[in-house]
Design a protein around this nucleic acid. Structure first.
Length: 834
DNA sequence: ATCCTGTTAATTTTT
DNA sequence: TTAACAGGAT
């Protein structure tokens, strides 16, 4: 069965209820159901939801998990059959790249011309498509480093085996190999899993598809590997040449499938760039003949206007199964489209809007800002920091990806597995022990000559006098330390062991001595790491967890606005959603367009669709005329997706300042399908972006003038505060509003108007005054009771900007010269004394 | 071996 | 703009 579940139609509910149903009817026991998701988060959520439905009976659901965790589980049981030992290490991207770097260097290839990163992507790509080195076509294998791509892939796989390691792709690929080469093992799992359920099927890649299909076949007669290697080889690259339909159905149609239920939404397939094959879902009924397809089209989440806009937008895609979402809720507000001069103004407008919503009782948890690319986040963060508006960035650098955590993990890994060369290399000289490249090179040579791991080579070398006294002593200490820790492994609880390791290695000390901005945070993270170990029985279990589950869900307690990428937002929902940056080149991202043409455009459109459908009540789209990309200013055009929004569900907000014209005329940019000129009103002034474009030459100067001129005044008014404030605010707002409208009415001939006078009052003035009002409100209350805990000249620490010295104290607002981040204005609650 | 400085190349991201 | 990284200086 394929359940095509549109956004907000209750996809997860279908899966959990189905499982609960199967369990409660006794059709299968918990251990006989295979349920796979993509993320740990989704798996966790399903577990709890099933648990609450069925009660204690569930007791685990041992086979509910991510593709990778289940793959790892199976692989560990039969590791020897694929040339691994059960305790194999799971490498992450970082390890992978370091390994590849070595291989590339060993081949005498210029790593600058052929970066390891590129090769890693290429190998991932192959693995996503289920290709082992010998299955990579010669043409494609030549893609990297003048035809050595395939050889490097093969060498990499070989190296993994000697390191007793597997990368993420291997967790699937090696399992597939295991199943094919050992039918009896496959049969064992086919028999065990009576029901198979798959979440987010539109995100599966070829390898995952093959993996599922093997498991989904009925094991009845002890047939040879149901799928002969090679016959089902995915089509060669090049997009159009997809697997021939006949070939796929030939391999499957004759076989009996058992109960497999996939849930997904082709309109939310946004991971094509990492190997997801929308075709898997588009061709489901070919692959699994006789399958029932059910469409869920009733949306319980968004208002009619939001849904109408989203549906109309996504209807422009051609490669889709087609669903018509119906709203169950009220009509609600139209989707708002607005424009801004640049991203700074955009952030300011969003901040302002959020403060207004907050005043009307909107919980900040229910507000999200969804951006296309993470560099957009910065502007919002900066703005929110000055506003004192609590925010939270979702999906930033993950806990286990931080350098200090990875270092600590390397120590622990090396204690657990002396053969872990990658871990050894990572930490021999961290903290600095005077063991540099030369020493490491000598160790490598010895290790290769004797065929032993690096840690063993270190032991040998420390015993000889091949090294100078200093490095020799250092090396001997390291070897002795690891011997000591390994001896303690069985007697001490693993958390205690971790503390000892971090302590005796000098690692904690290294950060304690470090006076840089984030040292304190890093130490905190290390503590958190040890704390999180408590949940695990032993070191081994903990290491497995970290390798697979790269996130910690430390529940954030405070109510805050969420900032995240559109990708990270999939599966979430909020009352209010801000969608900034709908510009050509950013929302249909240029790179996506360049690299994948129309398919890329459609994926970008799905991304826009995902963004819109995250909103329950209010969706606000915005775009800017000027954006700073890689340091230089670039003018931008409104996104073509704006043209594709239906007039009846959208409200175009006139810009508050003199740049209202930004909207007009964008319908022409692409000769839009329907007449947006009419839809969004013609006769606005010259589009701001056009003016910007014309003036681009001198723009940088204008820009700096503009900030210099207005920044001080904003500050002055803030300081003035008091009685004047409210009046000033009201006056300004009306006057800007009317001036904007007047301009709009006047129509075209605004080209001659000087830039700066228009730019300045339109945003920095208005926002700077209105924005901090609420804060100042707090300030009055707070600063009377608790007169400035900070004084000019104090050394302080800020979570984001690091250490700094206070320059100016203005109530609860501090102007701080940060060591690294430069001068910033920050609300005092965000800093503490250093 | 480590520190400093100029060059370079910049989506999306889970496991 | 900026952060990472490689190569040269110390």
């Amino acid at each position: 069965m394929l359940v095509l579940a549109g956004a907000g139609t209750g996809k997860t509910r279908v899966l959990t209820t189905r499982i609960a149903h199967i369990l409660s009817l006794g059709r299968a026991r918990a251990g006989e159901i295979l349920a796979v998701t993509f993320t740990n988060k989704a798996a966790r959520e399903m577990k709890t939801r099933i648990g609450s439905m069925v009660g204690e009976v569930v007791e685990g659901m041992p086979w509910l998990g991510t593709f990778h965790s289940i793959g790892a589980k199976i692989l560990r049981r039969h590791a020897e059959l694929v040339g691994l030992k059960p305790a194999f290490t799971i490498l992450d991207t970082d390890d992978q790249i370091r390994l590849l770097k070595q291989l590339i260097a060993a081949e005498n290839i210029d790593e600058k011309r052929w970066p390891a990163r590129l090769l890693a992507n290429q190998i991932d790509h192959w693995k996503n498509r289920g290709l082992t080195p010998d299955q990579v076509s010669a043409g494609e294998g030549a893609a990297f480093a003048n035809g050595r791509g395939r050889d490097l892939y093969a060498a990499y796989q070989e190296r993994l085996k000697t390191l007793n390691a597997a990368d993420f792709g291997d967790l699937l690929l090696e399992t597939i190999r295991l199943f094919r080469e050992h039918p009896e093992v496959l049969r064992q799992y086919q028999t065990r899993f009576r029901y198979i359920l798959v979440d987010e099927y539109q995100d599966t890649n070829v390898a995952q598809y093959l993996w599922l299909r093997l498991l989904a076949q009925r094991s009845s007669h002890g047939t040879a590997p149901a799928v002969a290697p090679g016959t089902d080889r995915p089509s060669p690259p090049g997009g159009e040449g997809r697997t021939v339909p006949a070939e796929r159905s030939r391999t499957t149609s004759g076989l009996e499938q058992k109960n497999i239920c996939c849930v997904g939404d082709d309109d939310q397939s946004i991971y094509g760039w990492r190997g997801a094959e929308v075709d898997n879902i588009l061709r489901f009924d070919h692959d699994f003949p006789g399958a029932t397809v059910i469409r869920l089209e009733r949306n319980y989440r968004s208002t009619a206007h939001i849904l109408g806009a989203a549906s109309h937008l996504i209807a422009h895609n051609e490669g889709r199964l087609g669903k018509t979402l119906r709203s169950e809720g009220a009509e609600g507000d139209k989707v708002v489209v607005s424009s801004a001069w640049d991203s700074e103004e955009e952030a300011r407008a969003v901040g302002e809007e959020i403060e207004q919503l907050q005043r009307r009782g909107q919980r900040l948890d229910e507000v999200a800002i969804l951006v296309r690319a993470s560099f957009q986040m910065r502007e919002f963060e900066d703005r929110f920091v000055t506003l004192g508006l609590p925010y939270r960035v979702i999906g930033g650098p993950r806990f286990y990806e931080r350098a200090e955590i990875r270092d600590a993990m390397a120590y622990l890994r090396l204690v657990a597995q002396p053969a872990d060369d990658l871990a050894f290399e990572r930490i021999v000289n961290v903290p600095k022990r005077g063991l540099g490249d030369a020493t490491l090179q000598a160790l490598h040579d010895l290790a290769r000559a004797r065929g032993v791991p690096l840690s063993e080579a270190a032991r040998l070398m420390a015993a000889t006098d091949a090294l100078k006294p200093k490095p020799r002593a250092a090396l001997r200490d390291v070897v002795a330390a690891f011997d000591r820790w390994r001896a303690q492994r069985d007697t001490l609880p693993h958390t205690e062991l971790a503390e000892i390791v971090l302590d005796e290695s000098g690692y904690t000390e290294m950060w304690q001595k470090d006076r840089s901005a984030d040292a304190a945070g890093r130490l905190e993270n290390l503590k958190e790491l040890v704390r999180s170990m408590e949940e695990f029985e032993n070191l081994q279990g903990f290491l497995e967890h970290v390798a697979l589950v790269m996130d910690t869900d430390r529940g954030e307690e405070t109510e805050a606005v969420s900032i995240m990428t559109l990708h990270a937002a999939k599966g979430l929902e909020f009352d209010t959603v801000f969608l900034p940056g709908w510009e050509e080149g950013l929302l249909p991202h240029q790179r996506s367009l360049d690299e994948n043409g129309r398919a890329g455009l459609e994926e970008e459109r799905r991304l826009a669709h995902v963004g819109l459908t995250r909103a329950r009540k209010l969706a606000r789209i915005s775009f800017v005329s000027n954006r700073r990309i890689h340091g230089s200013w670039t003018s931008s055009l409104p996104s073509r997706f704006l043209d594709e929004l239906p007039e009846e569900h959208v409200h175009v907000e006139e810009a508050k300042g003199g740049f209202g014209g930004g909207l007009s005329g964008y319908g022409h940019a692409y000769g839009g399908r329907f007449d947006t000129t009419a839809a969004f009103g013609s006769g606005y002034g010259t589009p701001g972006w056009r003016r910007g474009q014309r003036r681009r030459g001198g723009f940088d100067e204008d820009q700096s003038e503009y900030t210099q001129e207005w920044e001080p005044e904003g500050r002055m008014r803030d300081a003035a505060g008091g009685a004047d404030r409210r009046a000033g605010d009201g006056r300004d707002r009306t006057s800007w509003g009317s001036s904007g409208r007047a301009d709009a009415g006047a129509g075209g001939p605004r080209g001659g108007t000087p830039l700066a006078p228009l730019a300045a009052p339109s945003s920095p003035g208005g926002a700077a005054r209105r924005g901090p009002l609420t804060i100042e409100g707090e300030l009055v209350a707070r600063s009377t009771g608790d007169p400035s805990a900070f004084a000019v000249g104090d050394r302080i620490f800020h979570q984001k900007f690091g250490y700094g010295r206070i320059r100016v104290v203005d109530g609860n607002k501090l102007t701080i010269q940060f060591d690294k981040a430069g001068e910033k204005k920050v609300v005092d609650s965000f800093v503490k004394k250093a």
